[in-house]
Amino acid sequence: MNGLRIAVPRGALFAKTVELLDRIGIDTREVRENDRKLLFEDSGIVTMRPSDVPTYVEAGAADIGITGKDVLMEQSEREVYELVDLGYGECTMVLATAAGEDRATEALRRLGVVRIATKYPRVAARHFVETGRQAEIVEVKGSVELAPLTGLAEGIVDLTATGTTLRENGLVVREEIARCTARLIANRVAHKLKAREIDALLERIDAV
């Protein structure tokens, strides 16, 4: 117990995150063995969806947390400190469309606007504004690859690690938007009032 409450993401970043916490001396055995429990008093760990981590940390319900840069980009208005790029969980935010002739480019040329399905509406909208193109963003909650195959949208903006899912659904990457890795974030008040505890944790992370 180091006096800090730590928000740990379930899902793709979970394994590497508990591995990191183990190596810096936080006992995560109970967390690894129990995937239904959410709050672990002894280690100070709380587990949640990655996209909820900034919410808990911003409000001070957790002092620090680990989540993906993709989540922070999508929730860029959250007032949290982004302290460290942890380096693991590397993924790429991409624009992908069906293989063959690029339907997105064709839609832009002939219709003036391209329909983009995504779980990251704000990242997608920002990317198209910054590149001077008009897009109609369609928000979906899962299996985004389905959208271009069924005509819901011409393209998708999504996170990909290996590109396997894209390939299996006949999609190809047209543009890379950002590289995303796991980040350590901190509550703004805890960063000041628990400075010693947080700095000690940062030193141990630097050392591994």
Binding site: E58, A59, G60, N187, R188, V189, K192, L193
Partner: peptide, 11 residues
């Protein structure tokens, strides 16, 4: 200046 209280997560 910024005022903090450990009982509240925002200044």
């Amino acid at each position: 200046f910024q005022v903090y209280d450990p009982a509240h997560g925002v200044p």
